[in-house]
Design a protein around this nucleic acid. Sequence first.
RNA 1: GGCGUCGUCGCCAAGUGGUAAGGCUAGGGUCUGCAAAACCCUCAUCGUGGGUUCGAUUCCCACCGACGCCUCCA
Length: 484
Amino acid sequence: MALRVFNVLKREKVDFVPITPGKINMYVCGPTVYDNSHLGHAKTYLSFDMVVRYLRYRGNDVLYVQNLTDVGHLLDTGEDRILKKARQASALPMQVVETYARSYFEDMDALGVTRPDISPRASGHIPEQIAMVETLIHKGHAYVADDGVYFDVGSYPEYGKLSNRRVEEGEAGSRALKGKGKRSAEDFALWILATEEHILQWDSPWGRGYPGWHIECSAMAGKYLGATFDLHGGGIDNIFPHNECEIAQSEAANDAPFANYWLLVGSLTVDGQKMSKSLGNFVTLKDALKRHRPEVIRYFIYQSHYSNPIDYSDGALEAAGSGWERMMTAVRFARDKLRHPVAGVSPDAASIFLPVLEDYKAKFIEAMDDDFNAPNAIAILQSLTTEVNKLLNSAQPVGVEVLKAINDHYLELGGKVLGIVPEAESTSGADAARLEGVVRMLIEMRAQARKEKQFARADQIRDQLKDLGIVLEDRADGTFFRVE
RNA sequence: GGCGUCGUCGCCAAGUGGUAAGGCUAGGGUCUGCAAAACCCUCAUCGUGGGUUCGAUUCCCACCGACGCCUCCA
């Protein structure tokens, strides 16, 4: 079955057909690097991480471009975000940019987010942006004013097609006072002439200045992916004006469609309100990662569909953690058994389970093919977990081939695609081996005590280990331990 | 005011024109020396009111409510 996606541009679920079969060019709007990232950013970039991972898993060659905005993103006071932060921190603007770009990648790496193939910066693509503005002027889509260059929205009839917004005739100028040289309220800046104090400025045909926020994405997407490419992503909150302006500029300049498919991610909310820096209701990723495993954060985000909003709370994350533990307990159990094979059991014992694994894999792919339905995919992994638990807890011997197949399936679907199943933990290395030896010894001592009905002593061993975060579980075929 | 999304079990959350996945929590049971883990069982008629239909939670209309965007935000 073919991959289907909800294309925001058409407002319907359609077959996803790349321009070149097997080759997918995608662009995702990246962050403005002026502060630490929070969980809201994680929702967007984890969503596209899943998209990239799945597309690659299905055999596509994906070129993933995600920009870093380091200039031109203004506050409504007209002040550049980067400059404001720099002034507050008594630092150079590019120091701020460097600090938070690193911080962003640090957090994304910690979450297991696949790095984009190209992370272009706006400040590193000034010539490309100037060239694009010149093209727009030549084609009559932009005009030069006293304070900069503006895109003439009236010259592009399709403006508003993504966000389904119509340019209003009346009440122009009631707002949007920013940009005094505008002819129309809906026109937007392509190039802004800088005042003396504005440190971030470059030479241009229109005088020293800096680019408007939207033009960077158009210029950089065009440079690395071509005039027309397959997939454009971002947060739904940027659908207007940012994404709309990108389309207008690019299509007006290139006389070609911009992105064929638009995928936009729903916002993360707190108590029903969007998590955002301006509201101050955010949890930074650095804090979140101190309290939760990255896999649990991913599990939490993927439990709802990427296009829907998610309401964040500690309780919600903890509940996600419990669900994740259930799945991982089964995985660890299979790995335990794999590490300690029972003598005399044929490697292919219980091989009747192999088709069951294939069946769940097919269901998983079917779910993901349906507009990246990760919540459904996770539900399928949970159902698989029930089957695995039944098998592993039964009296039936399970051969190493089957155990390996179970582990491989979890690693492939839960690990490679969703990033919620880690590789085997602490099974290698001298420390791990030593820990395993020590715990095994204690398990032996406890087994002896139990044999002698000295339950107080047996329980003492178990309780003290639990205090150290090591949980003992007596199963039909022996005692296993897990580290919490 | 305009545009849009959403409203499914106590909580989170999929989904379908023919009586609703999964997780968390709760209750009962099995297993266990006791636990833990696991398994089994129980727990919803899908915001309200109309309409279309043999039949709607799923399609249409209205209303109510929540949220997002319209101004910086992933």
